[in-house]
């Protein structure tokens, strides 16, 4: 499988009144064609900013991509002019967001929102575009799609609006779908519908997917590979089975221990991760997780650990080997 996207040393900052927010701090990863990659991490860890940077959608000011390369199909997206980047966004990379209500335009009908893209990017006439729009809505499971083309977003439920967003995203046969917490605002039964839908479409169309979430359950069901982010950096990255069977960063380990599992009888007590994530304006000098880490050694507070490969495809940024026990 070929490489579709390569992100190298990407660094994005926000220049605010309170200081410089280090939102994304030099992350690197590779996404293969047709692969599903999940990015997990808690609120503020830089998940959205990292993919918005890839799409060149960072508001500037206050934001700025200060370093790095984003190689998509061989060209550096960060060096493209505005027209070329719009072409990529319209034809090759689609993005769906957490809140389907704010990303659909409330005063335009569903057809106006899908059809516009089809006419603009694929050069269809109106009749073709209407037919294709109805097909796309059928494909994402909207019943009687033809009759709903002239409805407005508020006439759809949250789950249906998210389906419409996916239909719009798919309208140009993208090679990459970036989904930023597409199910977080939805109920579990609707979430299950959307997850199944994306899995099916991915197989049918053969696109790659980057799925952002904070839900380790969703990750386990959808991802082939997983990136764990903390305080703007990647702390661990592995194939999905490897990550859950053999988590090696104390933060990943902590996350997995702090969540109850629905399929298990009650375990004794949850083990929370004590403390809070660091302030991104004043990051600690060493490892950003060190203040909360029970494996911490002196080196952790002085020197930031690089991401290094511990077995094929499994990378961890930690000075300590957690399999050897606490504080070794």
């Amino acid at each position: 499988m070929g490489v579709l996207l390569e992100v190298k040393g990407l660094q994005t900052q926000f220049f605010t009144q309170d200081g410089v927010v280090n939102a994304v701090n030099g992350i690197s990863y590779v996404l293969n064609e047709k692969e599903t990659l999940a990015i997990v991490g808690e609120s503020g860890s830089g998940k959205s900013v990292s993919v918005l940077s890839v799409m060149r959608l960072i508001p500037s000011p206050p934001g700025k991509i200060v370093a790095g390369e984003v190689i998509f199909e061989g060209q550096d997206v960060l060096k493209l002019d505005d027209e070329a980047i719009r072409h990529i966004r319209g034809n090759h990379i689609a993005m769906i967001f957490q809140d389907p209500m704010t990303s659909l335009n409330p005063v335009l009908t569903i057809y106006q929102q899908i059809g516009e893209a089809l006419q603009l990017h694929l050069g269809m006439d109106k009749a073709q575009a209407r037919q294709r729009a109805a097909e796309l809505l059928e494909m994402v499971g909207i019943p009687e799609a033809e009759n709903r083309l002239d409805d407005y977003p508020h006439q759809f439920s949250g789950g249906m609006r998210q389906r419409v967003m996916i239909a719009i995203g798919l309208s140009c046969n993208p090679k990459l779908l970036i989904a930023d917490e597409p199910t977080t605002a939805l109920d579990v039964t609707i979430q299950a519908q959307i997850v199944e839908l994306v899995k099916k479409l991915k197989n049918d169309i053969g696109m790659a997917v980057i799925w952002i979430t904070h839900d380790l359950g969703v990750v386990a069901g959808i991802a082939e590979r997983v990136i764990v982010m903390y305080a703007g950096g990647i702390v661990e990255q592995a194939e999905v089975h490897e990550l859950y069977a053999n988590p090696r960063h104390p933060y990943t380990l902590g996350l997995l221990k702090s969540i109850p599992r629905m399929d298990m009888k009650r375990s004794q007590r949850l083990e929370p991760i004590e403390g809070l994530p660091p302030d991104l304006i004043n990051l600690p000098p060493g490892c950003p997780f060190a203040p909360r880490c029970k494996y911490r050694i002196d080196r952790c507070t002085q020197e930031k650990p690089p991401l290094k490969e511990i077995s094929p495809g499994h990378e961890v940024a930690c000075w300590v080997d957690v399999t050897e026990g606490i504080g070794s």
Binding site: T189, Q191, A192, V195, V219, M262, D263
Partner: peptide, 15 residues
């Protein structure tokens, strides 16, 4: 039954 079956479980082998 449907609600429980929809809840994702943080274990790729189970999923």
């Amino acid at each position: 039954q449907a609600l429980l079956s929809a809840v994702p479980i943080p274990d790729p082998v189970v999923e």
